[in-house]
């Protein structure tokens, strides 16, 4: 579920005013726990997910897990 689009490089964390960095992030759905590379703020750790990722790959994984 690795994701990096051109768009997100322009985004900053508004709270910390820092540029986002690609990092390993833990995600969870139903009984599935795994690590993926996502953009996040290195200070406060908030993770950035854009529309294409949420409605694309992420939804696909969710549906896959729901049918398990």
């Amino acid at each position: 579920m690795k994701h990096e689009s051109n768009d997100q490089t322009k985004w900053l964390c508004d709270k910390c005013q820092r540029e986002l960095e690609l990092a390993k992030v833990k995600v969870r759905y139903m009984e599935g726990n795994f690590e993926v590379d996502l953009m996040k703020c290195p200070t406060c750790n908030q993770v950035f997910i854009d529309e294409a990722l949420a409605l694309g790959k992420m939804k696909e994984v969710e549906e896959g897990l729901e049918d398990k």
Binding site: V25, K26, V27, R28, Y29, L38, K40, C44, N45, Q46, V47, I49, E51, A54, L55, M58, K59, V61, E62
Partner: peptide, 27 residues
């Protein structure tokens, strides 16, 4: 998730989407 712009007192909504997967942030 809501993408928006602030216009004086109102909010211009650019896009809205959601996901069910939970992101476990480090804290």
């Amino acid at each position: 998730w809501v993408k928006y712009e602030k216009e004086e007192e109102s909010f211009l909504i650019k896009s809205v989407y959601s996901h069910r997967m939970e992101i476990l942030e480090e804290d």
